[in-house]
Design a protein around this nucleic acid. Structure first.
Length: 531
DNA sequence: GGACGGTGAAACTTCAGGTTGCCTC
DNA sequence: GAAGTTTCACCGTCC
């Protein structure tokens, strides 16, 4: 049923008007925008206009939540402070740059009705089930690298608009609102998004990294072992179904087989490793098998090209001193790490200095200047610098200011780097390169905690992260043995009573035998208590 | 006259997201 | 392509 709603224009901004109107109805809204920055700015704009009743339950609830959000990281970033300030007014922004815990809090408290408005990038529409009475789609276009500003797909519009209405909360209907600046824009939106057909779904199989990954895993799992079987298999895929003609696919497959063979990931079934090109095969029914290396690559779900580059790096490292920076650079050069941080013109000098510093020891070679890959190379170095500073114990706030890398993005990069380093370990075991395995494992621990090497012994203890470990280390408690020897009072002063008891227990000391009495004043212990 | 603050136009900068692996000391 | 941010010129006010 068509229903028209008039919303008063009071704030000189359509989104703020709609948001205030929604809250006035005691309902909730989701606002979708096309950049992370816009999500933050829009949430702040609404928050500034929101007036809460003084000393109300709502104000109190939001204050508590706001404080919780601020405390998520040990040192709050500018982003944390902005989010906390918004939440104090019942609005929030939501995008992939948030710390995981903050996302959870925002989502959970929107579901509970504590947060009334969320301004979000499409993250929210994709996976999470967060319905709201109103959905405001402010931006229907988005910047795309080679195309400039492009209209978003109809399917994506449906994803967002579909969040409108909460039947569980007795909403009889929901409202999805698009913002148009002009009358002609309005007509365009109605034509494309309201009455238009969604796009066809197409197969991504012909994208080379996907194809070579599947090709290798099909061979490695012995699902297909001859060119005939391979062609037959791909002939029955959705890709072939959509495009009909498999001629193009077939030529790509043959090219991929040649590559896999030249990288030693596949070989002939009877005598392993004895062909370097699929063109050498006598016929299409020759038995093709994965080599042990190829099998491992397939098990790791690695793109064979990435695996090949990693292997080259591992081989190269045999003649070099392996350093954390060069290891990180090796994984940052992999396709899986993209999108990389973008090197800005003003940063070229600092980046160049890093390159000069490590140049001779780099596991990935520097491409020639002025070639198209050079920009990627600089971006990879900048991403490496971010991770290198992280393992040098820089905090999230510094990293956000220096690299514009939000806590959420940092976490994502760390996860992928960890997976690639794990892959390096597995590949290096097969090559074999023992020293490389050890260095990778050490680096993985440092990456996990964001700590220097000297803290690793302490980080093995549960409930000890980089902050507490650094405190202990600064007080000459440097490993498990030192923890065992350490005075309980000193430990308590450094990391708090509960954690002190906990880690003493972990190193095999039963603290209850130490007759520790709690002082009247909370958490404090006097010398007399410790006998 | 100079320091300071406010304002607005012009120039500049930046742009969503998030699968896979595993046993390990 | 457009939103958001930064920079800078300009103006008014105050001491």
């Amino acid at each position: 049923m068509a229903k028209s709603t008039k919303i008063a224009s009071l704030y000189n901004n359509v989104v703020v008007d709609i948001a205030m109107d929604t809250m006035g109805m005691r309902k909730q809204a989701l606002v979708f925008v096309n950049t992370k920055k816009s999500a933050e700015v829009e949430a702040e704009r609404i928050a500034k206009k929101r007036k809460l009743e003084k000393n109300s339950t709502e104000e109190y609830q939001l204050k508590i939540l706001s404080e919780e959000i601020l405390k998520v990281l040990s040192s709050p970033t500018k982003q944390c402070k902005r989010l906390a300030a918004c939440v104090a007014k019942g609005t929030a922004f939501h995008h992939a740059g948030l710390a995981a815990k903050q996302r959870e809090l925002v989502e959970g408290n929107f579901k509970k009705g504590v947060i009334r408005i969320i301004c979000a990038t499409p993250t929210l529409a994709a996976g999470i089930n967060l319905p709201a009475f109103r959905v405001v789609i402010r931006d229907l276009s988005r910047f795309e690298p080679r195309r400039g500003m492009a209209r978003i797909p109809v399917l994506e519009y449906h994803q967002m608009a579909g969040r409108a209405g909460r039947p569980d909360f007795n909403d009889e209907y929901g409202e999805a609102i698009c913002i148009a600046q002009t009358e002609s824009q309005k007509e365009g939106i109605i034509k494309k998004y309201i009455h238009g057909e969604p796009e066809e779904i197409y197969s991504k199989l012909a994208v080379e990294p996907v194809l070579r990954t599947y090709l290798l895993s099909l061979i490695a799992s012995n699902f297909v072992n001859t060119i005939e079987e391979i062609m037959d298999f791909f002939g029955r895929t959705f890709y072939a179904h959509t495009f009909g003609n498999t001629g193009e696919l077939e030529s790509i497959i043959r090219r991929m087989l040649n590559l896999l063979a030249s990288w030693d990931f596949i070989g002939l079934g009877n005598i392993e490793n004895d062909f370097t090109s699929a063109d050498e095969l006598e016929n299409d029914s020759s038995m093709i098998k994965a080599t042990p290396l190829g099998k491992r690559v397939a098990q790791l779900y690695l793109d064979p090209l990435t695996a090949h580059e990693l292997i080259k790096g591992i081989e190269r490292s045999k003649e070099l001193i392996i350093m954390p920076f060069t290891l990180l650079h090796l994984v940052c050069s992999a396709l899986e790490m993209r999108p990389l941080l973008r090197a800005k013109t003003a940063e070229y000098e600092t980046i160049q200095e890093k390159i000069n510093l490590y140049n001779e020891r780099m596991l990935q070679k520097e491409p020639p200047l002025y070639e198209s890959e050079y920009e990627d190379f600089l971006n990879a170095i900048k991403t490496t610098m971010l991770l290198d500073e992280w393992i040098d114990e820089r905090n999230e706030d510094y990293l956000l200011e220096t690299y514009s890398a939000t806590p959420g993005e940092l976490k994502y990069k760390i996860d992928i780097a960890d997976w690639l380093l794990y892959s390096c370990v597995e590949l290096a075991k097969l090559l074999p390169h023992v020293k490389f395995v050890a260095e990778c494992n050490k680096l993985r621990s440092r990456l996990k905690y964001g700590a220097r090497e000297e803290l690793l012994p302490l980080l093995k203890l549960k409930n000890i992260g980089r902050i507490r470990a650094r405190k202990l280390f600064a007080n000459r408690i440097k490993d498990v043995g030192d923890v065992r020897k350490a005075d309980f009072i000193v430990l308590t002063q450094l990391i708090g009573r509960a954690t002190a008891i906990d880690i003493k227990k972990q190193v095999g000391e039963d603290i209850s035998k130490l007759k520790v009495k709690k002082n009247k004043r909370k958490g404090q212990i006097s010398l007399n208590d410790y006998k």
